[in-house]
Amino acid sequence: MSPRKLGNRPYTVCIEGNIGSGKTTFLSHFKKCENTIVIEEPVELWRDVSGTNLLELMYKDPSRYACTFQSYVQLTMLQLHTRETSHPYKVMERSIYSVRCFIENMKRMNVLQNVEAYLLEKWYDWALENTKVQADLIVYLRTTPEVVYQRMRTRARKEEDCVSLDYLKLMHQIHDEWLYDRTLFSVPSPVITLDADKNLEGMLEEFRVCADKIFNR
């Protein structure tokens, strides 16, 4: 394969999906590719905002902290999108685009005031209009909520203790509306949808097929 860039930027792939859909495991395979930089979600930044675990606060008291948390998420994801690299390929865990899924979820759960949702969406629009953020491909790891709920219980992150199956069902519905049905938001790039309910061996084969499509584009 011959590495190449699109102008002065890398070919950018965003890995999207519900909590527990296997994004981190999927990304680990790309780390073996010398021509690719892998950028994971900055969870550690969200866990330590000037000494405060903002991620945990958001899950425990969303009515109080959802807007604050989402503002910081948008900032950190934008910083990752605009990070310069010499690699011809960039693979990201989620993206600035999927920020809207979580805003939509908060709206449907009524944990945001109307003015908070308005400000978050205006900030999102400004970011896309005034920065050089682009995606060339989205890989949607599509899962059933019951599967990701069991995975989440198994990995036992303390911040996720209060995440319910109903929450995961709503996030699944929003992701499907966005990337599968394509009825919710505009989709910034072509989408490859993978069945991420499979076990590790099955997902390894899905990765191989997906990587071939990416590097041969």
Rank of each mutant, 00 (worst) to 15 (best):
Q70N: 09
L57V: 04
V209C: 09
N216S: 12
R100Q: 12
S21R: 02
D125K: 15
M203Y: 15
D181I: 00
L80V: 03
A211E: 13
E116S: 06
L165F: 11
T154W: 01
E206N: 15
E41F: 01
I138L: 14
E34F: 00
L184V: 02
N130V: 05
L137C: 13
N18M: 07
L6D: 07
P190R: 15
K198I: 11
D161E: 14
E40Y: 07
Q150T: 13
A156W: 02
F102L: 09
N35W: 04
D61S: 14
W126Y: 13
R182V: 08
M1T: 12
G17I: 01
I96Q: 12
R9G: 03
K213A: 10
K23R: 05
D212H: 15
L75Q: 08
S164F: 03
V191M: 11
H81G: 06
L170Y: 11
V139F: 06
N130G: 02
A127C: 14
F26D: 09
R182D: 04
D197I: 00
H29Q: 12
M92Q: 14
Y59R: 03
E34C: 04
K107I: 14
M58A: 14
G7K: 10
V187G: 12
R151D: 05
E121T: 15
E16G: 02
N35M: 10
Q74G: 15
F207A: 07
S95W: 05
E34I: 01
I174H: 04
V91A: 13
